[in-house]
């Protein structure tokens, strides 16, 4: 823990200490003009070799064993440089057998995927807001009911394209919404990360 605090204070002083600041223009190769490079060389329409999808079947010393929904078996290497999202940024010890995931990284020679980013149980759903209940929003998703839990300190809402805020009281029954959330495995429930919705009626 002390080590963690030291590392955090080092990173904090690196970004907030004023002595080392240089102008952004010094980062020539990172300037916007250089940013419009060609896309990578994966053929459009083809399976992406650097992407994995499936459910966790085992976790072993920094390696996630994942059964792809199409039958592929994946070995995903998690390092200090890998980000793990499970409703919010978290660590490998919060990942459980049975979780679903998407992962992006670099495919190594032995078939292992060295993960850059892992999103655990993430869902992105287009829904109708069917009803509100204490700390819950009932969604209608393709005619099926999904229960969304509002998680204090995490759940945020973006209304009418404005920046996300924690206040959920403007959520309205009957409106369309898009919701990024974390599925609770083998249920019809999710925890809500971000809800994009509107307080204005659209005609359609």
């Amino acid at each position: 823990m002390a080590l963690n605090m030291d590392r955090r204070s080092l990173l904090t002083s690196a970004v907030l200490g004023s002595a080392t600041l240089v102008g952004a223009t010094a980062l020539g190769s990172l300037a916007p003009e250089a940013a419009f490079a060609k896309s990578d060389d994966v053929e459009p329409g083809a399976p992406d070799p650097n992407f994995a999808e499936g459910r966790v079947t085992g976790i072993n010393e920094g390696m996630l064993l994942v059964a792809g929904s199409d039958g592929t078996l994946w070995r995903i290497r998690v390092t200090n440089a890998s980000s793990i999202w499970k409703l919010h940024p978290t660590s490998l010890d919060k990942v459980a057998v049975g979780d679903g995931l998407y992962a992006r990284g670099v495919r190594l020679g032995d078939g292992t995927l060295a993960a850059d980013a892992i999103w655990v149980n993430i869902v992105n759903l287009q829904v109708h807001i069917a009803a509100l209940a204490p700390k819950k929003i009932h969604f209608d998703h393709r005619g099926k009911r999904i229960i969304g839990h509002v998680v204090p300190g995490v759940t945020a809402a973006s209304y009418n394209s404005t920046p996300a805020i924690a206040d959920m009281t403007m959520v309205q029954v009957g409106r369309h919404a898009q919701v990024i959330g974390a599925w609770l495995p083998d249920t019809n429930e999710i925890e809500i990360a971000t809800l994009y919705t509107s307080t204005i009626e659209h005609n359609h």
Partner: peptide, 13 residues
Amino acid sequence: PAAFSAISSLSYG
């Protein structure tokens, strides 16, 4: 998800 994650994080909707 394979395509979107090549240009953005999936946690941004």
